[in-house]
């Protein structure tokens, strides 16, 4: 399969994503962000699960470059990159309106024990660690805005020492603010 085919599959995938955006349904993408805030850095774990179905089939088939029906080696890496991009591209972080750039430290992908190029579910985990470029003090605000590929709600947990954690299911595309303790 040449690069055109890959591009076509990617377009198909994009179309499907747009369709899910338009219609929105409970099964699809499940995104959870676990964030810890300290005075020196922001750490976050982004986990995105993709329910089994056409999206996974498209995603898996798109990276099965040798067409052996199995996702292995570099294909896994490529699948991971796709998923990481999907999970992190819409994420916008800022501190008291000053944007901060996302620093991805490590990533992981899970084929859910099924390496075939089929419609089995997928998961991706992204570890983000961002050292503050400027001092952060009590009263400043951590701002987070994320969009789920299918516009479904996102589970957001923000932890700070000695403060009750912020734990809510936030709407896709809506900015959430958490005060630094």
């Amino acid at each position: 399969m040449g690069s055109t085919a890959i591009r076509n599959r990617a377009l198909l995938l994009l179309g499907l994503l747009v369709a899910t955006t338009a219609f929105g349904h409970p099964s699809g993408f499940h995104k959870k962000l676990t964030v810890t805030l300290t005075k020196t850095k922001v750490s976050a774990l982004i986990v995105m699960d993709v329910d089994s179905g056409d999206r996974c089939l498209l995603l898996r088939e798109a990276v099965d470059s040798n067409r052996d029906g199995l996702i292995t080696g570099l294909e896994v890496t490529r699948l991971k990159e796709q998923l990481v991009k999907l999970a992190t591209r819409p994420l916008k972080l800022s501190i008291s309106t000053a944007p901060i750039a996302l620093v991805i430290k490590e990533t992981k992908v899970s084929l859910r024990d099924d390496p075939r190029a089929n419609d089995a579910a997928l998961s991706v985990a992204v570890l983000v660690e961002i050292e503050h470029a400027h001092p952060v003090s009590t009263g400043m605000e951590f701002e987070l805005e994320d969009t789920s590929p299918d516009q479904s709600t996102i589970v957001l947990q923000v932890f700070q020492e000695g403060v009750k954690p912020f734990q809510e299911e936030v709407k896709s595309g809506v900015k959430t603010k958490v005060r630094f303790n």
């Binding site: 676990t34 964030v35 810890t36 750490s43 976050a44 774990l45 986990v47 080696g73 570099l74 896994v76 890496t77 991971k80 490590e106 992981k108 992908v109 899970s110 084929l111 390496p115 998961s123 985990a125 570890l127 660690e129 947990q157 932890f159 700070q160 020492e161 000695g162 403060v163 009750k164 954690p165």
Partner: peptide, 23 residues
Amino acid sequence: VPFVPRVMPDVRKLFHGFHSDPE
């Protein structure tokens, strides 16, 4: 005011606990 333990989740540890497939 409810007591909040000072212990925060260790995001790095949570990440390492995530199952991944070999690349």
